[in-house]
Amino acid sequence: MKWHGVMPAMTTCFDERLKVDHAFMTRHAQWMLENGCTGIISLGSLGEAATLRFEEKTAILKNMAAATAGRAPVVAAISALSTDEAVELAKTAADAGCEGLMVLPPYVYKGDWREMKAHVTAVFAATPLSCMLYNNPVAYGTDFLPEQIAELAAEYGNFAAVKESSTDVRRVTAIRALLDNRLQLFVGVDDAIVEGIAAGARGWVAGLVNAFPRESVALFEHAAAGRDREAFELYRWFLPLLRMDTVPKFIQMIKQVQQEAGIGNARVRLPRLEVTGAELAAVREAVAQALKTQPAVRSLAFATA
């Protein structure tokens, strides 16, 4: 498992009956890989995992493994209410053909370090798969501190990467100061990608990549190569969209961006509802402006069927 580059936190597409649209998801994953993405992350927050039944999660992972056909890794986000369910999902992901796991703290319960360590290490130990720890204290209320991350890295050899979504790029340098290159660090919030790479991140778990993959890859590559002028120009164009990744309705907004760009639909499962009114108008205006001023680098055409 190679943790590097731009890995989409892939949205879960639903049909008119709000059933998982596996055919579309196959085309979507393949299209993002054709545009330069280095892997696919399924069942994350953006993938509406909390609304998916266990059998739906299993079917998605099997479909993604078949869709990528070994050309890039499939990473399963492991999130659950209980540790037992998280361990079961990790084992299922391994059986389905995934090459890595992105391990989240448990839903709902915000435990202390002793409890959170017990939870995530149970998942680490469940399979030999390479694991990424997902740190998002803003969304989940659980904050894995750099010293705690170092403790995990010393004890588990298959703990290989961190998705850092605290929104504080100083966390990237703090982890590197303790561990050097022992872990691969990924930026987990879209509108901090250039800053995160400057601090030492080597990858990006991205959201707006679902609609603009080649543009996302180009931004990452410019920043990683130190091409500051090119990176800033592309970043300035992209920021109104990237900022949608950091608001409570990020799922609805990113799916709406996809629909406006002709990449799928805006359907979400309850309790979420599609954006309306001023929120919908703002998304449409941002996408229209982005398409009007699109840079020379742009994604390949998407096959609708």
Results as ranks from 00 to 15, higher is better:
Gly39Ala: 05
Ala90Lys: 06
Pro295Glu: 11
Ala86Thr: 13
Ile193Arg: 00
Gln184Arg: 12
Gly111Glu: 02
Met10Thr: 11
Lys163Trp: 06
Ala126Gln: 04
Gln184Met: 10
Asn181Leu: 07
Ala282Met: 12
Ala206Pro: 03
Met25Trp: 08
Pro248Asp: 04
Ala303Gly: 09
Leu129Trp: 03
Phe212Ala: 05
Lys249Asn: 15
Pro137Thr: 11
Asn136Arg: 04
Pro73Thr: 11
Met116Ala: 10
Thr142Asp: 06
Pro137Gly: 10
Ala224Val: 06
Cys98Asn: 05
His119Ser: 05
Asp228Val: 14
Glu230Asn: 11
Ala303Cys: 07
Ile251Ala: 00
Val172Phe: 14
Asp228Ala: 15
Ser79Ala: 11
Ala90Asn: 03
Arg17Trp: 00
Pro105Thr: 07
Met7Lys: 10
Ala94Met: 13
Leu270Asp: 03
Ala211Asp: 01
Ile197Thr: 05
Arg27Gln: 03
Phe238Leu: 12
Tyr140Val: 07
Ala225Leu: 01
Ala288Pro: 10
Leu46Met: 10
Asn210Cys: 05
Asp191Pro: 12
Ala198Leu: 12
Lys91Ser: 08
Ala192Met: 13
Gly47Phe: 00
Leu129Ala: 02
Ala49Asn: 09
Val172Gln: 11
Gly39Cys: 01
Ala261Glu: 07
Leu152Thr: 12
Ile251Asp: 00
Gly188Tyr: 07
Val169Phe: 05
Met7Trp: 12
Glu99Val: 06
Asn158Thr: 03
Thr276Ser: 13
Gly196His: 06
Gln258Met: 14
Gly111Met: 03
Pro271Leu: 05
Ala201Glu: 01
Arg53Pro: 00
Ala154Pro: 10
Ala223Thr: 09
Asp112Cys: 13
Gln148Asp: 15
Gly5His: 01
Pro240Ala: 01
His222Ile: 08
Phe186Asp: 02
Leu291Glu: 07
Phe302Arg: 06
Asn265Lys: 01
Phe14Gly: 02
Ala282Gln: 13
Ala161Asn: 01
Gln148Lys: 15
Ile193Asn: 00
Glu147Phe: 14
Tyr140Ser: 05
Gln259Asn: 14
Asn265Tyr: 04
Val275Ile: 04
Met102Ser: 05
Glu56Arg: 04
Arg243Ile: 13
Ser45Pro: 06
Ser165Lys: 09
Ala296Pro: 10
Val209Leu: 12
Ala282Asn: 07
Ile41Trp: 14
Val108His: 15
Ile254Phe: 11
Ala177Gly: 01
Ser166Gln: 04
Leu104His: 15
Arg27Ala: 02
Glu151His: 14
Thr293Arg: 07
Glu85Gln: 15
Gln289Lys: 15
Leu179Gly: 07
Met32Cys: 04
Glu215Leu: 04
Glu221Ser: 13
Pro248Arg: 00
Cys37Ile: 08
Ala225Ile: 00
Val103Leu: 05
Cys13Gln: 15
Leu241Ala: 01
Phe54Thr: 10
Arg171Ile: 14
Ala150Glu: 10
Ala80Gly: 00
Asp191His: 14
Ser130Trp: 13
Pro295Gly: 09
Tyr235Trp: 15
Gly44Asp: 03
Val162Ser: 00
